[in-house]
């Protein structure tokens, strides 16, 4: 009886929360915006070095956000890896042997790598960019991992560390260099904008793919025969 009452209270609170949120959203929708952000972005787009406005916002106008974001990703990956039980990475027990999976690996992984490259390249003037490319890269890695293909770069070591940190490090170096040499933190010097953005995007793609893949691999998988420890 008590449990039912608690459930009822929680449901009531959630309904009230939803109602409040709906009223707020309606209120905001009726109020005209004070600043016209789209117009501001469109005005400065020609100076940003890229033609896709979302990429311009991500890597130029608000690159600070992206820098912090890749920092968060690296921290998440480090936490995940510290729980990993990597010795079981190529445990034959965990290998999925499936004809379909092998065919997918053979045909899809090269295709996915190509798609990732395309998305990265397309990001400057049409939908696409580092995040999408990084996700596709990670998906290709997951496909490889499911068939337990040996991927030595995911073992603890210099390659793993380098791959995880590369995006953040390059981004940070660019930010600091622009702070010392130029006007402000992350204010790219004139003429270098496009080159810097493309470089940062490329290393971001690698690092994002690496972080997501590392987090996927990090799951402690060897519960067999070990979980009978007393609780």
């Amino acid at each position: 009886m008590k449990a039912w009452f608690a459930t009822f209270v929680v449901l009531a609170v959630c309904v009230a929360f939803t109602g409040l949120l709906a009223v707020t959203v309606w209120d905001i929708a009726q109020t005209p915006a004070l600043v016209q952000l789209p117009a501001m972005v469109a005005e400065k787009l020609s100076e940003s070095g890229v033609k896709n406005p979302v990429t311009a916002v991500l890597l130029n106008f608000r690159s600070y956000d992206t820098l912090l974001e890749i920092g968060v990703l690296v921290i998440a990956a480090m936490t995940g890896i510290s729980m990993a039980r990597t010795p079981t990475l190529e445990d034959p027990e965990l290998r999925t042997s499936n004809e379909l999976l092998f065919a997918l690996q053979r045909w899809f992984v090269p295709l996915m790598l190509m798609v990732a490259g395309y998305l990265l390249w397309a990001g400057s003037d049409r939908p696409g960019g580092a995040f999408q490319a990084g996700a596709v890269l990670a998906a290709a890695g997951v496909l490889m991992r499911l068939g337990a293909r040996p991927m030595n770069f995911l073992r603890p070591g210099i390659l793993l560390r380098l791959g995880l940190v590369l995006g953040f490090a390059v981004f940070l170096v660019v930010a600091l260099a622009s702070a010392f040499a130029g006007e402000a933190f992350l204010d790219y010097p004139e003429g270098w904008t496009k080159v810097l953005i493309v470089t940062i995007e490329a290393v971001l793609t690698l690092s994002i793919g690496m972080v997501l893949l590392a987090l996927f691999v990090a799951g402690p998988v060897n519960e067999y025969g070990e979980e009978d420890d007393p609780v």
Partner: peptide, 23 residues
């Protein structure tokens, strides 16, 4: 484009948080 960029960042952070939570 501004909220779209924010949401894009948010999606990537959300998936990494989800992966960490699963670990």
């Amino acid at each position: 484009p501004v909220p779209q960029a924010l949401v894009l960042t948010g999606i990537v952070v959300a998936v990494s948080a989800t992966a960490l939570a699963l670990v």
